[in-house]
Nucleic acid binder design. Structure first.
Length: 558
RNA sequence: UGGGGUGUAGCCAAGGGGUAAGGCACAAGACUUUGACUCUUGCAUCCGUAGGUUCAAAUCCUGCCACCCCAGCCA
C-alpha cells in the first residue's frame, strides 16, 4: 500500500486525487490511455499518456491501453498495433490491452436498453439535418424532437430493430433525453447510437449500430473500473455530459471522474494527422517515422531518447492553461540526455587534407578516444594518427576572425587525442585551398605531453588510414520559422507548400573514423564539436547513414 | 449576445493574505585536449486591468478587458 503522507502532489490533478484518497472518496487510481486507432502517435499524445501512466503509478495504481474504436469508418488495425511499441519505447507497460469494440459493445448496448426503459433515452426518427434545425444555437435554446416523448416500449422496439439491421444508415438515432434548452449545447439530447453498416476492422459485421463518444467513453471507463479519466482540455465542456451518463447510465456507487489538462503545443511543429498523412502519401517525407516528424516513431528515428522527450514534457508542467513551447526547450532536454549516453566519435563533414610533413609515410600510431568524458565507465576506443589526415575546412582560416582558436597559417592547434601541429604552408589550387602542410610536435602527444606548450584550440580529425565515407542526413525544421502555429495557418487557408521549408532534408557525405562502421540502427553518437547523430535504419553494409539528431550548442560568437 | 476555460518575465511555470521559486532563452565571466558539458553571475519594485477589503493582496471581493473551446450520427 502507498503511504499517502509521503506523496507530494505535483499538479492540480494529483492534488485532487490525493484529497480524494485521503477522504476515502477514491480507493485506488486506475487510468486509461484511450487512443482512437486512426493515426500515429505524436509528441502531444506522449504528454497525455505520460500523465495517464505516471499519475496512476505515483498512487500505486495502473493503466490500461484501450483502443477507443467505436467508429468503424475511421479505424484501421495498422495503427492499433503500433501503439504498444510506442508505449514500450516510452518505458510504459499497460496493465492490459483492451479493444473497446470487443470488450464493451455488448455491455454498452445493454446499458442503452436500460436507459430507454428508465425513460432516459429515446429513438429519434429525425434526419441529421432536421436534428440540427431543432438544436438551437449558442444563444438560442433548441426544441424537442416530436419523437422525444414516445413510449419507452416503442423506443426499445425500434432500438432492437436498429441493431438487427432493419434500418439504413442515418435513418434513426438513439438520443439521451436531457434538455433541449440547456445552455451547454452538448447537453441538448446528445446522440448515443448511430446506425452504420460499415465493416469494422475488429468486430466485422457483428454490429450495425455504434455508440458515440459522449456515451461510449464514460461507460467504457466505468466498466473498466477506471477511477480517473484524464484527457485534454478540449473535453472540458464534455464533462457535464460525461457526468450525466455516469449518473443515468451507470448509476453505481463507483463513479469515474473526468479531469482535463491543456494540450502540448510546440512552435513550428506540424502534428495534424491529415497533414502528416498527406505528406506520407505524396512521398514528400520518408514515412510516418520521418525524422522531421514529431511522431513517436519519427522522434525515435531522429535519435531522440525517450528520457529526453519525457523530461521535456515534465518541464512543461500539467496545467489547464494553453501554452506554446519553443522548440529549443525540447532540444535542450534531448541534448541533456544524449550528453550522458552518446558515444563520442570523430567525423569530418567538409574535409581539408593536411600532410604532416615530419611524420614518416606509411607509419601510423594508435590514439585513444574516450567514449564519453562525462562517464568513466563508458571506456574508450582506438583511432589512428598518420602522415595524411583530414580536418574540417572551417577549422582553418586564412583570414581568421577575432578570437579564432583554430588553425591559422603559422599557428598551433591540438588534434584531439593526438598531437599539437603547426601549419607551415598553405598549398593553393587557384583560389581554393588544396591542402595544408603541417608539422607535428613530437613531445605533445595526448596524455604524455611534457612540452609545456599551451594551445587555445583543439580540433577533431580523421586519419586517411582510418576513415570511410558515410552519408549524413541533415534536417531543418519541416515548418518555416515564421509559422509558429502551422495548423492555425493552414486553417486560415495558407497552403501547405507555403508553410513547409524547402529542402528540409539535405544529404551530405562525411569521413568517419572506422570505429563507426560497427553500428546498428538507432545507435547514438556525438560527433565531437558537431552534434548528436544516430544510425538510420536505411543503412546498408556498404553505406552507413547517420541522421543528425541535433547540433551541439555553439558558443563561438562571430 | 449562451455556456465553459485561461490570464505571473521573450517562452513555460511555482506560489492560494506577510512582501515574486525553478527551468528554457538571452547576456557576462570561469573552466575545458569537444568554443560541448560543468560552474558563477545577471535577468518581474511586480503578478491582464480598474476599484474595494486589510496593518499587509499575485493571493480575498466586485466590475471590466483579452485569448481559447463548444452547435459531427468524430474522438
Amino acid at each position: 500500500m502507498i503511504d499517502l503522507d509521503n506523496i507530494k502532489p505535483e499538479n492540480f490533478i494529483e492534488e485532487e486525487i490525493l484529497d480524494d484518497l485521503k477522504a476515502g472518496r477514491s480507493k485506488e487510481v486506475i487510468t486509461r490511455c484511450p487512443p482512437e486507432p486512426s493515426g500515429y502517435w505524436h509528441i502531444g499524445h506522449c504528454k497525455a499518456w505520460m500523465i495517464d501512466f505516471e499519475t496512476a503509478k505515483k498512487f500505486g495504481g495502473y493503466t490500461y491501453l484501450r483502443m477507443d474504436d467505436t467508429n468503424p469508418s475511421r479505424e484501421q488495425g495498422e495503427f492499433a498495433e503500433s501503439y504498444l511499441d510506442d508505449l514500450h519505447w516510452l518505458g510504459y507497460e499497460p496493465k492490459d490491452v483492451i479493444y473497446a469494440s470487443e470488450a464493451y459493445f455488448d455491455k454498452i448496448y445493454l446499458i442503452a436498453e436500460e436507459m430507454i426503459k428508465n425513460g432516459y433515452a429515446y429513438v429519434d426518427e429525425l434526419s441529421q439535418e432536421d436534428q440540427q434545425k431543432l438544436k438551437g444555437t449558442l444563444t438560442e435554446p433548441g426544441k424537442n424532437s416530436p419523437y422525444r416523448d414516445r413510449p419507452a416500449e416503442e423506443s426499445l422496439k425500434l432500438f432492437r430493430e436498429m441493431r438487427e439491421g432493419k434500418y439504413p444508415d442515418g435513418s434513426l438515432t438513439l438520443r439521451a433525453k436531457i434538455d433541449m434548452s440547456h445552455p451547454n449545447i452538448l447537453m441538448r439530447d446528445p446522440i448515443m447510437y448511430k446506425i452504420s453498416h460499415e465493416h469494422h476492422y475488429k468486430t466485422g459485421n457483428k454490429w450495425c449500430i455504434y455508440p458515440i463518444y459522449d456515451f461510449a467513453h464514460p461507460m467504457e471507463d466505468a466498466l473498466e473500473g477506471v477511477t480517473y479519466s484524464l484527457c485534454d482540455i478540449t473535453f472540458r465542456v464534455h464533462r457535464e455530459v460525461y457526468e450525466w451518463f455516469i449518473d443515468h447510465g451507470w448509476n453505481k456507487p463507483f463513479a469515474p471522474k473526468q479531469r482535463e489538462f491543456s494540450t502540448l503545443n510546440l512552435e513550428n511543429v506540424l502534428l495534424g494527422k491529415r497533414y502528416l498523412k498527406a505528406l506520407v502519401n505524396e512521398g514528400k517525407v520518408l514515412g510516418w517515422d520521418d525524422p522531421r516528424f514529431m511522431t513517436i516513431v519519427g522522434m525515435k528515428r531522429r535519435g531522440y531518447t525517450a528520457e529526453g522527450v519525457k523530461n521535456f514534457i515534465r518541464s512543461c508542467g500539467v496545467v489547464a492553461s494553453e501554452s506554446t513551447i519553443p522548440f529549443s526547450a525540447l532540444e535542450y532536454h534531448v541534448r541533456e540526455d544524449l550528453n550522458k549516453i552518446a558515444t563520442r566519435a570523430m567525423v569530418v563533414m567538409s574535409p581539408l587534407k593536411v600532410i604532416i610533413t615530419n611524420y614518416p609515410e606509411g607509419q601510423t600510431e594508435e590514439i585513444s578516444i574516450p567514449n564519453n568524458p562525462n562517464d568513466e565507465n563508458a571506456g574508450s576506443h582506438k583511432a589512428l594518427f598518420s602522415r595524411e589526415i583530414y580536418i574540417e575546412q572551417e577549422d582553418f582560416s586564412l583570414n581568421p576572425p577575432p578570437k579564432y582558436n583554430r588553425l591559422i597559417e603559422g599557428g598551433l592547434v591540438r588534434l584531439k587525442g593526438a598531437y599539437v601541429i603547426r601549419c607551415n604552408k598553405v598549398v593553393m589550387d587557384g583560389d581554393k585551398i588544396d591542402h595544408l602542410e603541417c608539422e607535428y610536435l613530437p613531445n605533445t602527444k595526448s596524455g604524455q605531453d611534457n612540452s609545456g606548450i599551451k594551445v587555445k584550440g583543439t580540433i577533431h580529425f580523421v586519419s586517411s588510414q582510418n576513415c570511410f565515407e558515410c552519408t549524413i542526413r541533415n534536417f531543418k525544421n519541416l515548418v518555416k520559422s515564421e509559422y509558429l502555429w502551422p495548423s492555425k495557418a493552414l486553417a486560415d487557408g495558407i497552403s501547405i507548400d507555403e508553410i513547409l521549408e524547402k529542402d528540409s532534408l539535405i544529404e551530405t557525405t562525411a569521413l568517419a573514423e572506422n570505429f563507426l562502421k560497427n553500428t546498428k540502427p538507432y545507435d547514438k553518437f556525438q560527433f565531437m564539436r558537431k552534434g548528436y547523430y544516430c544510425t538510420d535504419k536505411d543503412s546498408t553494409d556498404s553505406r552507413v547513414i547517420f541522421n543528425s539528431t541535433i547540433s551541439l550548442k555553439d558558443g563561438f560568437k562571430k
